[in-house]
Every structure is written in structure tokens, then in C-alpha cells.
Design a protein around this nucleic acid. Sequence first.
DNA 1: GTTATGGCATAACACCGTTAAATATTCTAC
DNA 2: GTAGAATATTTAACGGTGTTATGCCATAAC
Lengths: 210, 210
Amino acid sequence: MGSQERRVRERADTRLRILDAARELFVRDGYAATTMRAIADRVEYTPTAIYHHFANKQALLMELCTNDFAALAAAFRKIEPTDDPRDSLGKIGAAYVQFGIEHPMQYQLLFMTRRPPAAAAELARREEPGESAYAILRASCAKAVTAGVFRARYDSPDEVAQMCWGSLHGLVALHIAMGEGSTIPWRDLRKTSARLSDALMRGLTRGSRK
Amino acid sequence: MGSQERRVRERADTRLRILDAARELFVRDGYAATTMRAIADRVEYTPTAIYHHFANKQALLMELCTNDFAALAAAFRKIEPTDDPRDSLGKIGAAYVQFGIEHPMQYQLLFMTRRPPAAAAELARREEPGESAYAILRASCAKAVTAGVFRARYDSPDEVAQMCWGSLHGLVALHIAMGEGSTIPWRDLRKTSARLSDALMRGLTRGSRK
DNA sequence: GTTATGGCATAACACCGTTAAATATTCTAC
DNA sequence: GTAGAATATTTAACGGTGTTATGCCATAAC
């Protein structure tokens, strides 16, 4: 009776193929511009077939998002063990920027797209891994706060986390949204973000710096 | 022969009413979610009438954007006269965040949306006001650089401008994209951005700070 | 008074996400 | 081996979208 196993395996396989096709098209053309019909064409099915594996178009996006979110969180988790909290934060920032450079479209989906409230609630309900990535960042900030490396006024882990996240996100997001075709003379993203990270860290920490 | 004048006046008036209706709906429901039919209903016309005043839906958005963008650049220009370049930068940043809070929809379109190369070229061709806003920011940074308020390594006006812009943009953009429905405990945007601005400025400037 | 023109509406097109119903395919059970 | 159940997929369609070709009609020009 291994046939049933094969069935579920095949089902999981086509599910994955649909997901891959969707990712490619989402990345290449953007979420709004890719149609269910195009995804179906790519896996050589009818559009309706997709609905037997996913509730709707948004569910496709959601699944891709949670996967990539998890990958980001995993990258964060690999970093943690450091004694100086400032180093941890710097490395987290670098990994974050790296993620944005390597997966610009997923980055756009995850961080640059206003989600319909329903989708946001859904993501939150399933313990959104993106927020788990945020939790890692926040924990690192909290450690730095309790270690006393920051100036007294920066005593809120959430605030510090949002400052760090926001500043790097801004550079990454601007590069993704306006990096091409604009007349703005963009500097190298990796370098600029590292230097921004340094400057911010210097501004946050106490006077006793190098 | 004043009748012709009246005609062009009336035409300009309905054009403006369409634009106002579109703005309201875009801001309230988002660009994608508002339909041409809804806009038409609001001004008591048929959808087709709109196409006698605007090329298409995107043209509506574009016109609103350039208007608000010009307003942003104007707000920047009002600030300039200050003796301390750091104050100027801080005020520019505050005005920028204010713009994002007041016009989240336009902000999203202008700064958070990956434009098709054609649209980007079009915007660049008409001397995109967004880049003129950037020019103002850059000029302010250049003044600060030549005034010697920054550390020696921060000698590129473009790099400093992109750091400042990026850091504030990040906070604003995250709030717009993920501010609602997320489980992330967002801090107040205005306050956090001001504190981020301060911290970054401290990190960029020489040791002689308060 | 006839003719052009501008402003708008009617009707329709092609496409979208999505769904109900029908069909093909595969597995189970006798 | 075959009937029947279950699953996988398709066909056809619905309501909605942005957009357009066509036609109407009041006004302006001669």
C-alpha cells in the first residue's frame, strides 16, 4: 500500500512546482503583474488546478513569504554567538542587507508591500517568521541595552531595533525601488549600508568608543 | 468670444474634480483597490469621461504624485536658510517624515514602488520633482561636508545624503507597509525618526558635540 | 440653418481572480 | 477483471477590472 505514499508525494511535488513557478514570475514581473493563468501555463496546468493546491493567489504569495522569512530568520540565528553586542548587531545588519541584495523581489514582497489587513492578520496568526526575525534583532538590541553599551536615553529595545532595522531597510528598499533608471547617483549599497550601520552605532553608543 | 474661455475653465474644473475624487479614493482605499468606475461615480460621470481628461488610471496617480512631490520640494526649500548645517538636515528630515505621514499613498507610489523602466524614464524626462528634492538634500549635505562638521571619512555628499535619506525612508516605509495588522510593537513614527536622525547625526559628526 | 467640434454616454472588448460543474484518471474492493 | 469510490484536472462561466470604438447631442462657427 505504498501507492498512497506516492500520491501524497506527487501531490507535494506539483504543489512545489506551482510554488516555484509563482516565485519566478513574482520575482520577474511582480506580484500584481503575474496572473494565475501565467503561473498555470508555466507548470502546464489549467488555472483552476492551482486552486486545488492553494486557496488563492494571495496564499501563494503568503507561502513564499513565510519560506523566505524563515530563511532570513535562520541566517540571523547563525550569527548570534558573539560577546560584543555591537558586533552582533553589525553582523545582523550585514546579513539583512545581503538578503535584500540576493532576493530583491522577495524582499519587496516581504517588506515593501502593503498587505491587505486580512493577509497581515493571517501572517500574524501563523506566527509570522518575519516577526521572529524581528524578535532576534530585538533580542540582540535588548542584550546591548542591558549591557549598557547605549546611551541612557536609548533604553527601549524596540525603539533601538526599529532604528537599526529602519535605517538599513531604507537603503535596501530605495535601491530596489529606484536603483535602476533613476538619475540619482547611487553609491554602492553594501558599502554605504555598512558605513551607515557604523555611524548609527557610534551615535547610539556611549562616548567610550574607538 | 468669452465662451471659449468658459469652456476651458469648465474643462479645467471637471479635470480638477476628477483629480480630487481620485486622490480621496486612492488615499482611503489604496491605488489598486480604487476603480475607475468608483472615481467616475464620485464625480457623477461615466468611467469613459475620465479618459477624456486623463490618459489612464496611472496618469491620474502620476499627476497627484508630481503635485505632492512638488509640495515636498517646496517644503524643503522653505527650510534652507540656517547657519548650522546640522539643523538644516534635521529639519529636512522632519519635513520628509511629515510628508510620509500626511501622504502615505503618494509616498508609497513615489518611493516604495518599483517603476517600470518606461515610467522611470518618463518621470526623469519631466525633471522628476522627487529628484529635485534629492538635490536639495544633497546640497544641504554638501554644505555640511564643506563646513567640516562631519568626520573626515564622510566626505561624499551623495553618500551622506543617501545615508540620511535611507535611514528615515526606512522607518517611514516600514510604517506604511507593515504598520497595521502586524504584531510588531511599533513605536511612534515621528518620535522614533527624530531620535534616529539625532543618533545618526551624532555618529556622522566630529567629536565636538554636546 | 447647416456644419463642425467638444463633452460625454452606451456598449463592448480583453483580461483578471475565482468557482460550479463535468470529466478524466487513479486507486480500492470485491 | 471489473464496478465503484476517490482524487486530479479541465471546461465553462461569473462578476469585475481598465480601456476603447462608436454614437449622441448640445453648443460654436460660418
